[in-house]
Design a protein around this nucleic acid. Structure first.
Lengths: 340, 340
DNA sequence: GATGTATATGGAACCGGTTGCACACATTGG
DNA sequence: CCAATGTGTGCAACCGGTTCCATATACATC
């Protein structure tokens, strides 16, 4: 027998409304009736159907979380941050993975309709290579959205980012001022990724600041993956003799470069510096330990969730979207040539 | 103006039922009417409310996915496998993280009620240290459940596991037969983890098979974390001179041991072998590259989702829960002493 | 022309809750 | 003693869809 609040009402000899009130502690219910109802609910192990509740209350208590399949080390951190904040307030997280399985267009269509059909109370989206059509569709959503890794403020969408520029700047500063490197190569990520763009921007800025030229032939374009880095290595290899250091736009690519260099008998950090960006979990344990820039992904998740909650409880915030930029931090290990 | 199918019906000059039919392609609707309705839907950008649909159809098209916050490297793999299968069939994933934030009891209560209140069509649970009360509550759920990392078949719950025992056996075999190691220490994970228990069991079995004794003083108990491994290292250190190899029940602990050994000036794989279990993403890139046992976590996620879908479409499968055991594979790298 | 069948549509009940309103009763104060 | 107020409860509408059933029309068949 399917249990509904009507069934419970019948068993308790009261009306649906009274059961509902007893359940929610709203309105008037006498102590005696309440005890009786709760007793029956306990006895029959009744659990109210949340979607019926949502239908009445016009709230789903669900936040969508969209992540790329390739966010590798960040998955856990971001999810943990988000969940930690939402759980406390009784919200759940509906997950969508971009580019798992189907084509990326399908995946984007899927997550947009997830947000809309499921009437999400809010959504946190991490989709570095998002296209403008999807942005437009998101901008039309009435649910509060927080976008990670890209500034979509001008489309009316809150954004949370890490300070890539100053991260890159401090890295270059370290490479130049501490080690005296002058010829620094750069390995970019995907063209459309703001993270990649900004990291490169910071790199250029800092090089300029130190009066160094950025040789175009020393800038390589890859895709943030280990295998992608291996692929561009042959090109990099040709210039190895005139390079002091390789600055990779993320750790995974740095790992690929390091691995390829070792195959050539070169020891990164000794023969040539190789540094990354991200501070992945494993960065300190590889050989050599990777000098990189730390991104507070757990905090990103937490702050994103907090912002969503804030906007849910105060819908007028809709009007002025904000952008929050979190600080990054240079982590010096050995792959830059430092002894510690 | 909030759009509902009634609004659309009014605009199209037809009844709700006709709109519903046009939307779902069910029943009879004339081509002309259908076009008109769909045109209006497109024009007003109407999206049906999935929870209302769920309420009628008695299906949520949602599967719960429960993961521990500490599943580190597996997060991504399992989630990807699950999502990939579910997405194709139009299902979404509702996520809960065990032990993020609140106490573990609270987190368990939370995910059980998530499954019940939200009327999940199914659930995939990865909670290695689950307690018997929670198991009992899960067993009472009417939704199909697939449990990962622990055999709960006797409670009527489908289980998917990896073959820890044969994984350990092949590792020991390698250490003994290939390298001639005889005195092998073992670092366990949490007492209650089946993975840890079985890996140890396989270890004992194989040692016995090779006519080797397992010295009790060479078995250490940790918790699957890097820091946990560091903590038991001082004990391990005392016996270092009479040990050929250290077999850690997972990669993270192996990494901790490796790191501590290096601090002592010992080079793992050269002075003493250190091996792990999991084949985490970073395992091949650390120094020395870690010899370990690969677990197919992506497949675990995929198969779990497939099984859920199967059970949803064929509820009679409820009767006989199954246990699927996926093969593991020895991955030989350098930390065992091999040159490659 | 009567009957049968396929097609097209609307009405109303239903899914499982919440909530505004009406009503009944008890208590209190003037 | 009556009005005002505070409690306790039920009815019915509503949230936004689906679906069964009844009705209506068109067309073919005998």
């Amino acid at each position: 027998m399917k249990l509904t609040i009507s069934q419970i009402a019948k068993l308790a000899g009261v009306s649906k409304s009274t059961v509902s009130r007893a359940l929610n502690g709203s309105g008037y219910v006498s102590e005696k009736t309440k005890r009786k109802i709760l007793e029956i609910i306990r006895k029959y192990d009744f659990v109210p159907d949340s979607k019926a509740v949502s239908l009445s209350k016009r709230r789903t208590f669900t936040v969508g979380l969209i992540l790329p399949a390739t966010s590798g080390p960040f998955y856990g951190e971001v999810i943990r941050g988000v969940e930690e904040v939402l759980a406390v307030k009784g919200y759940f997280t509906l997950l969508a993975i971009v580019d798992s399985g189907q084509s990326i267009e399908q995946a984007r269509a899927r997550y947009v309709s997830m947000i809309r059909e499921r009437r999400m109370d809010g959504a946190i989206i991490f989709d570095p290579t998002i296209d403008s059509k999807t942005v437009e569709r998101l901008a039309r959503c009435k649910a509060p959205i927080v976008f990670l890794s890209k500034n979509l403020q001008k489309f009316g969408i809150d954004s949370i980012k890490v300070d890539n520029i100053s991260g890159s700047v401090s890295m270059v500063k370290h490479l130049v001022e501490k080690h005296g490197y002058r010829r620094i190569a750069f390995v970019k990520g995907p063209e459309v990724s703001d993270d990649s763009i900004e990291r490169f921007e910071g790199f250029l800025e800092a090089m300029h600041e130190h009066g160094l030229e950025c040789d175009e032939s020393l800038v390589f374009c890859s895709d943030f993956t280990l295998e992608g880095a291996r692929k561009i290595f042959p090109q990099l290899k040709k210039h190895l003799n005139k390079i002091d250091a390789v600055f990779c736009a993320n750790d995974e690519m740095a790992l690929g470069i390091i691995d390829e260099m070792k195959k050539l008998g070169l020891y990164p950090g000794k023969d040539i510096a190789v540094v990354g960006f991200d501070d992945a979990f494993w960065a300190r344990y590889i050989d050599p330990p990777l000098t990189t820039v730390h991104q507070p992904m757990y905090e990103v998740g937490k702050i994103a969730a907090q912002r969503i909650l804030e906007r849910i409880s105060n819908p007028t915030l809709f009007k002025d979207p904000i952008t929050i930029i979190l600080q990054t931090k240079l982590i010096v290990r050995r792959s830059c040539g430092c002894s510690q």
